[in-house]
Design a binder for these strands. Sequence first.
DNA 1: GTCTATACCCGGATAGAC
DNA 2: GTCTATCCGGGTATAGAC
Lengths: 231, 231
Amino acid sequence: MRGTLRADGERKRALIYDTALALFREKGFDATTMRDIAKSAGISLGSAYHYFPSKVAIVFAYYEEVQDAHEERVRKKLPRTDGLLERLTLVFETKLELVRRDRQLLGAIGATLVQPGNELSAFSVEGRDFLQRSVALFDAALEPLATTPEARRTMALLLWTAHLGMMLRLVHDDSRGQKRTKSLVSRALTMAVPLLQLAATPMGAGLLAQLRSLLEENGLMPLPEETLSEG
Amino acid sequence: MRGTLRADGERKRALIYDTALALFREKGFDATTMRDIAKSAGISLGSAYHYFPSKVAIVFAYYEEVQDAHEERVRKKLPRTDGLLERLTLVFETKLELVRRDRQLLGAIGATLVQPGNELSAFSVEGRDFLQRSVALFDAALEPLATTPEARRTMALLLWTAHLGMMLRLVHDDSRGQKRTKSLVSRALTMAVPLLQLAATPMGAGLLAQLRSLLEENGLMPLPEETLSEG
DNA sequence: GTCTATACCCGGATAGAC
DNA sequence: GTCTATCCGGGTATAGAC
């Protein structure tokens, strides 16, 4: 039966995935070999490669799951959260909590992201969707700001950049419970909120507009080409 | 003779280095193997590893050279350059020009920099000197700003962060002559200068002080421990 | 036709003889 | 300090089990 086969395949894929993540967390990314994973999952090496084309592919699957979970948790709590600071804190801290224990994996992702020509970089077409989904969460958090959608989107992208900084800090943060990164986030947000509010006023409009065109030209912001589906 | 021996060793090291860089530039970092390098330099694989402990070590030697060259060029021209925008442009564009053609190598550096526990990260003790040297150039460029040394140093560190962003953009920029990154730098600086001038006023002092303690706690800014050499 | 076992290639890194 | 031989692990190719 078709369904059974597919379900089997998916179960197997999940088995490999779970086994791999367990090993990564236990021994670290580099120290875990594909042979370890296959052996520990009780399958052959070839089979593992059948489901995941490479070791990093497993890590990217992990990151996709993180992205899903982040989205779900934030979308659930955001409507009940008032205040710009609280809303932004929610987005940042939820993300941090999701990835906190997986610094090694984040390092592996980061490493492939800085490779020239990498398909998954934010600057590439293929990585665009990933970026947009993530930025959308920050955009949603900014809802209380009374400003134009464009300005909001620009600020959301800036926040996403800041979130990248958080990830970089996290990777090197071996303090207990990653409290250093936590403290960084909370203090940085406290400083950022008034600036965002300032940027949302007519006074900040000019600056934001300049920023926006800068970001657009570097492929970080989609030029308004959605219009073609409206015609 | 001692001197001759050392000179021989250095000459050999330089030979490996030059050969490696030529190959990196010709075929790219990944596609160039240590065996290629050794063969092309006319020595054995083991010998190559005697002079450089790893493939990335060669790249870091390159980066140190870049750092030296950047320092030299900037220090030479800075005294003859007036105006904040011009001075900052000098620092950024000189750096860009130095590394522009070596995106693959920069990627390799970036990849090791995001590995947890890496000794050369800016957050680590070992990478501190590297960071400080680089920040000092931005600090020097900010000289025309009438403000406190602490505030200036904070801004310099922010600019260094921005310079990291430039590098990330550069790695993915395959436009002709990397004009995209060039344009990004020039436009971003035009926007940044008024903000820096604003931050240098008493109005910006509070914000900068907050920023400073944030950066200090994350090991990016040296706590004033130089005082011990003064006693 | 789907998965496994296994042998193999490649390249980074190391050991140890000289 | 140099070289050869070797290890190790990611990734691939393939032959055959079922």
